[in-house]
Amino acid sequence: MNIQPKPFPDEAESARHPFLPAIDAVEFYQRDRAMHPPAYAPGYKTSISRSPRRALLALQNSLSEITGPVFGHNEIGLLDNDLIRNYAKDRDPIGERIIVHGQVLDENRRPAPHTLVEFWQANAAGRYRHKNDTYLAPIDPNFGGCGRALTDENGYYYFRTVKPGPYPWRNYVNSWRPAHIHFSVFGSGFVQRLITQMYFEGDPLIKICPIVNTIPDQSAIERLIAPLDINASVPADTLAYRFDIVLRGRRSTLFENRLEGN
């Protein structure tokens, strides 16, 4: 399968295929908002005063939407995808050593190559290195809790870290976040921009989390839960979890489809 994105249709191609306007043909699929959390999700209290209440304005894509920033390897440090080492002062951080890896794809199953993936998390005790985090669990002097990677030509990324701990938060009196890692992903167009959270297989806190439960679609929740990937673990060293991320698909023209066989 040819995994490189096809060039965008140009004027000449559009003239040969008059049903394919040059700009309009490369827009993204409409976002299926029925499986995303709504802006107003009162079980997550902070959303109540931070949610727009008027209807979003439906806007067909123009160049402003289908373009987006491109990042290069020279912008990323060698240790940026190793959270075990990128803040270590005198020893490795405390916690279960894990690899998180996966592929960034679009809804057409095309890999998203050379795209920026950023991640941040609490330490093994459930504490963030952030001045607004006042949880009594200790800061780990050897753990920063953030990193980033560019996907390869097949859309793959990976990083090494310690498994984050669950922590309490003030939603209800006794609300706890399941262990999770935050992800930020770009894609090729600014409207593919996505922030989400990855959860861990088997965590009993997932089903009672008010933030998880902002998502109305059970299968969409399940797609945020990374399974243990024992085959990708490093024996006697590090376990692995697999987390694939799907960005919005680009509307490919029929012409492209025929060439690419998708």
Binding site: R31, D32, M35, H36, P37, Y44, T46, S47, L105, D106, E107, N108, R109, E118, F119, W120, Y128, R129, H130, N132, D133, G144, G145, C146, H182, S184, L194, I195, T196, Q197, I211, V212, T214, I215, D217, S219, A220, I221, R223, L224, I245, V246, L247, R248, G249
Partner: peptide, 21 residues
């Protein structure tokens, strides 16, 4: 055979350490 877009989740209160440390 299309895949479904990954669901969004809030950036949370500590987005700064990830994106603008």
């Amino acid at each position: 055979g299309y895949l479904k877009e990954t669901a969004s989740q809030t950036a949370g209160p500590y987005v700064h350490i990830g994106l603008i440390p």
